[in-house]
Amino acid sequence: MKKQITLTVNDKIHEILIKSNETLLDILRNHLRITSVKAACWQGDCGLCTILLEGVPIKSCLVLAYEADNKRVITVEGLSIEGSVSKLQESFINNGAVQCGFCTSAFLLMGHYLLKQGKPLERKEIEHLLNGIICRCTGYKQIIDSILAVSSISSE
């Protein structure tokens, strides 16, 4: 069964012919070629395929593509503003939160979501909220530092 869906990705509208057994991850990577959305387990353990669906983080390997019909998706490309990186992306660069980079997009999207909640964030709380994404290189500390750094700027 094929079905046409309408998907808004980073403010661009796409009409895509999907198969019923395709996941949102399949669509983003294979149809739209947004390769910043990574995958490393295809079953919700690693969190690398995290994207924002209607502003909420979800693991796109566990969402069927049709479920995203008429919905808005944000990937890491959607965080940059007119060619320059966002404050959080800059904070990742300056705080050494990047090593191999394979998990970076997922953490940036999750960090962006947490900052958008507008609540003051504690280190322990951020650790707990980031448990759904694996990083094997950085040891997480500098990722948490980067989010905290932006959080403290915006709360000033």
Binding site: G47, V56, K59, L62, L130, N131, G132
Partner: peptide, 9 residues
Amino acid sequence: MCDEILRNR
């Protein structure tokens, strides 16, 4: 339960 991201689903 599971994690912050999966709890959205």
